[in-house]
Design a protein around this nucleic acid. Structure first.
Lengths: 237, 237
DNA sequence: CGATTGTTTGACACGGTTCAAAGTGGGTGG
DNA sequence: CCACCCACTTTGAACCGTGTCAAACAATCG
């Protein structure tokens, strides 16, 4: 099955999807190069809350998310959990030079993923310079995002951190508009992403509602009433 | 002046230094390839507390730190400061695909740096596959470190965060041993790195001394009395 | 040797955590 | 189809770690 077919299959589903040409990984690749990639691609379908890969397992595969949402997490032996990122269609994941993964990745929704054997993928990247460039760009984007996250965790208060997440989701989630937003994750996921407790996150949502910045129609669905203030709180600089 | 000459000049100075072949950037490059890089290299010497580059300035140059220590910071218009990382000899910096830098970089000590015009450097990377591989590995290491930092900021208490930094420095600073450590940064720098206040950092040092884990001989010099407990607190998993 | 800057210590306030209880919603079985 | 159940979320109250503000202390430099 080709990437294009996979993508088309999900082209208008509710979770959104990402056509190959919209993903940074495939940017500027020729039809022929995409074809080559297709030949080493293995589609993976996940139901909600299934693990795609586990922390400390061997990093033998790389992935590209086509549809759905994933959560990247690190859990310690004493049960502390840090959510490292949320992933959306078009995101490239699992690419590392380490022998083992430093995190686990789980689906939040039903998800479709394209998997490549790392070895095959690296070999191909070595023959397709554009692909290598794209990986470079992706690494850079990842670093940019992590820098923002470090800033948020180090400097922002609870309410601002929640706005920071909402603002990120507004820009990154397919199907999110200026006016409304579907949250694919639980309050616990949000808390673990922002370094807070579930109670603090809940209170932050309540406070933002009371201030008229958002309206919580349903636990997993928000209306954005005041995007400007949201952005201000999210960026806070 | 060649990189090798620069490096040799600092080979046994107190801040430590990094010979080209010890830096990830130069790993596996042939003598001839290093020679090529030398031809586009511009040495930069910084006194303590000089800016190498400013947030929002154009990212036209990339750098490799040869000797000394640098601090990477992001400051908002309302004066919030987050220290994003500390850099040591061998570290590669300023490489990005963005038009502008997202952070400033300042020297903590006297420092020697090799600068390359980004354009020249990228051109050369395109002709030297090993160099491109090395950049890829470096990006990966950076991401790994930022993940650890996110975990620390999101999950650890003040004392543990301080141990986290000390543990990082023990492994990364040239001249650091299991027994002792020179801190090139102020308490404020540490506080801004760990998302704490200067007072909390100070109290953490006091508490760690009282517990017999470290001894603060002098504000900028520590003895590590109990590396195992330090590591436990730093990793805390 | 005083002045300046950075650090430590102390007292208090506050934001966020913890623990507990009540509320909400979705799913299942009678 | 409704009632119950379970898991998750929200709310409340008390507590604690870290921030804030102020003062004492230390170190560096002219």
């Amino acid at each position: 099955m080709t990437i294009k077919q996979l993508a088309t299959e999900f082209a208008d589903n509710s979770d959104g999807c990402c056509l190959p040409e919209q993903s940074v990984l495939y940017t500027n690749l020729s039809a022929q190069e995409i074809e080559q990639l297709d030949q080493i691609a293995n589609p993976v379908h996940l139901d909600p809350h299934q693990y795609l890969l586990h922390q400390h397992s061997e990093a033998k595969t790389v992935y590209c998310l086509v549809s759905g949402a994933l959560i990247v997490e690190r859990i310690t032996s004493i049960g502390q959990r840090q959510v490292l990122s949320f992933l959306f269609p078009g995101d490239f994941l699992g690419y590392t030079h380490n022998k083992y993964f430093e995190f686990s990745i789980q689906s939040l929704t039903k998800a479709t993923i394209v998997a490549y054997q790392r070895k095959d993928f690296v070999d191909m990247a070595n023959t397709i310079p554009t692909l290598k460039d794209n990986i470079d760009i992706i690494s850079n984007n990842i670093i940019s995002r992590y820098l923002d996250q470090i800033f948020a965790l180090g400097q922002k208060k609870a309410d601002e951190r929640v706005c920071f997440l909402l603002y990120q989701l507004l820009r990154r989630m397919p199907g999110a508009s200026e006016q409304s937003l579907d949250l694919p994750m639980t309050r616990q996921d949000i808390a673990d992403y922002l370094g807070l407790t579930i109670e603090t996150v809940s209170r932050a949502f309540t406070k933002l509602s009371e201030r008229g910045i958002i309206a919580v129609s349903n636990i997993y669905h928000l209306e954005i009433l005041d995007p400007d203030t949201l952005e201000q709180l999210a960026i806070a600089e």
